[in-house]
Design a binder for these strands. Structure first.
Length: 286
DNA sequence: AGGCAGGTGGCCA
DNA sequence: TGGCCACCTGCC
């Protein structure tokens, strides 16, 4: 049984394009459209949630009874954060391309996803496309995660994953990433304070902590910091951002480190939000 | 039918 | 540091 549809305590007004980009644009890999219902259904933590857009463009959600809470859903959508001020602080006044991107996806924000599953999904993301990343997240959850009803499953935590033979993970379409997942699971299960320590650390230190894990390089670390740890200054440089930055700002696309430095300086403390706008625009180009 | 994909780690100059 | 290549596997 589903709870009733409701709006957020701070209304979230988005276009269909922005909502799609928010839920299915590469921040999270666990949302899908529900065939007859014209809404999105997603899983995070032990929440099973549906989201839809009303005529006035206000986002509404409902929670599967027994599987989630309003508090967690609002935390996930980062409702209690001043996104308007954050957007306004970006250098769009002096950067016409950024301004275009922001106009194309008005209201786009950064989800605040649970740390563990964010790390997991971005370790799975290397050298793959979104469809495949979604598939392996789905498969691992189906096989090892708790059932939440409607055929959905929660992400199994690191402890559960640490006990699964690498071979079985490989069978979940993980490929060579299975070893990374296995080893990371062992490390994080042994170090129960990792997440707490990371959240309390400045970005630079938090990034080093992440990069000490197998399968986590600069790009994956930045994604985890941005989408799963609330560090908005993290600036992931992937192939899309490389394209964008080299074409628009004239930087050498063979130097991702330089691009990350540029991003941090040019876009400021919410560089990660700017990144998301550029990313969304770039991907929407034919 | 094969190359390639939202990278990383390891090795070499 | 900077450049190259193997690594799995499924999709276009």
């Amino acid at each position: 049984m589903w709870g009733s549809w409701q709006g957020f305590s701070q209304p979230l007004n988005l276009t269909h394009d922005t909502l799609r980009e928010l839920l299915d644009g590469g921040q999270s890999f666990r949302w899908r459209t529900v065939p007859g219902d014209s809404c999105w259904q997603g899983v995070f933590g032990h929440n099973l949630v549906q989201v839809r857009l009303e005529g006035n463009r206000e986002v509404e959600f409902r929670i599967r009874e027994g599987y989630g809470s309003v508090r967690e859903v609002e935390a996930y959508f980062a409702i209690n954060f001043d996104w308007a001020a954050c957007q306004d602080a970006l250098p769009w006044r002096s950067d016409p391309h950024l301004e275009n991107c922001m106009k194309a996806f008005p209201g786009l924000r950064i989800l605040r996803q649970p740390f563990g599953e964010t790390l997991f999904s971005f370790i799975c993301s290397t050298a793959r496309q979104i469809v495949q990343i979604k598939q392996c997240c789905e498969t691992v959850a189906e096989r090892f995660g708790e059932s939440l009803g409607c055929g959905t499953h929660a992400w199994p935590d690191w402890k559960v994953l640490s006990e699964i033979p690498e071979k079985e993970l490989r069978a979940c379409k993980l490929g060579y990433r299975a070893r990374y997942i296995s080893e990371t699971a062992t490390i994080l299960t042994a170090d129960s304070g990792f997440e707490k320590k990371l959240l309390a650390s400045p970005v630079r230190d938090a990034k080093s902590m992440l990069m000490s894990l197998p399968g986590v390089g600069a790009k994956v670390a930045d994604c985890v910091l941005l989408f799963g740890a609330g560090k908005l200054e993290a600036f992931p440089v992937d192939t899309w951002i490389k394209k964008s930055i080299s074409r628009v700002y004239g930087l050498d696309d063979s130097n991702p480190t330089g691009m990350a430095r540029f991003g941090r300086i040019h876009f400021g403390k919410a560089a990660g939000l700017a990144q998301q706008f550029l990313f969304a625009w770039e991907r929407s180009q034919p």
